[in-house]
């Protein structure tokens, strides 16, 4: 997967590139508007991360030009202001998603992966298997090592989210938003408790342990590193 990051702020650009490269992407970096536009129109990318405020030419103009040329590459807009107008305008111009600066990297990575998945061919998900954990999405049932596991509907939704994004570190805020529609910070450890209870059901009496805690970042469901 090849990504283009158009961002003029040096430190942000560098850590975004490094983070994305370490997450397994090939990343090109443009540090101003004209460069960004040139690269976006001459090379093929699977996704463009585009800052709104850029020297030379602003992100909106670049987006407009790209779309006018019939290029439907997914674009993740980085907006500095959190004003609704800005977001609406970005989406109207054809951005696929937006992220308000400043953002934490795990959030950016999660959005990038979501956009790439949306663009690509979705796997017909009616069952997911990770190690000996099996999810039957149609009947909302989970089994581990052939053993049926009783989950509440929210526990199943949580497990499904982790399983669909196997290997991705999901921040607590993203989990709260996806499973419970809580789109704001709650100063409680609800997510930790929910994960602990889910672990008790799917991990405690089985090996290997699938749900991993990534300290300071969130949780991921994956086979432990060999």
């Amino acid at each position: 997967m090849k990504l283009l990051v158009v961002e003029d702020e040096h430190k942000t650009a560098d850590y975004v590139r490094q983070g994305l490269m370490e997450a397994g992407f090939v990343v090109d970096l443009a540090r101003d508007g004209p460069d960004g536009l040139h690269m976006a129109t001459t090379e093929h990318y699977d996704l463009i991360v585009l800052d709104v405020m850029l020297p030379g030419m602003d992100g909106r103009k670049i987006l407009q030009t790209i779309r006018a040329a019939g290029n439907q590459v997914p674009v993740l807009f980085l907006t500095a202001r959190s004003s609704v107008d800005d977001r609406v305008q970005g989406l109207e111009l054809g951005a696929d998603d937006y992220l308000v600066k400043p953002f934490v990297f795990s959030e950016l990575l999660a959005r990038v992966r979501t956009l790439l998945r949306r663009g690509g061919s979705p796997i017909p998900h009616d069952r997911i298997q990770i190690a000996d954990l099996e999810l039957d999405l149609a009947r909302r049932r989970a089994t581990r090592a052939g053993q049926r596991i009783n989950l509440t509907s929210k526990e199943f939704a949580l497990l499904e989210l982790l399983a669909r994004r196997q290997g991705e570190v999901l921040p607590r805020s993203l989990i709260a938003s996806q499973v419970w529609d809580m789109n704001f910070d709650s100063d409680t450890n609800v997510i930790d408790v929910a994960i602990r209870r889910l672990r008790a059901k799917i991990d405690d009496s089985f090996e290997p342990k699938l749900i991993q805690t990534v300290r300071g970042m969130g949780y991921t469901l994956d086979l432990p590193d060999a």
Binding site: K154, A176, W180, N189, V190, V193, A194, R197
Partner: peptide
């Protein structure tokens, strides 16, 4: 009710 669902795990604990 939605919030109760969210806090369910916490209150049970």
């Amino acid at each position: 009710r939605g919030l109760f669902e969210y806090f369910e795990a916490l209150v049970e604990e």
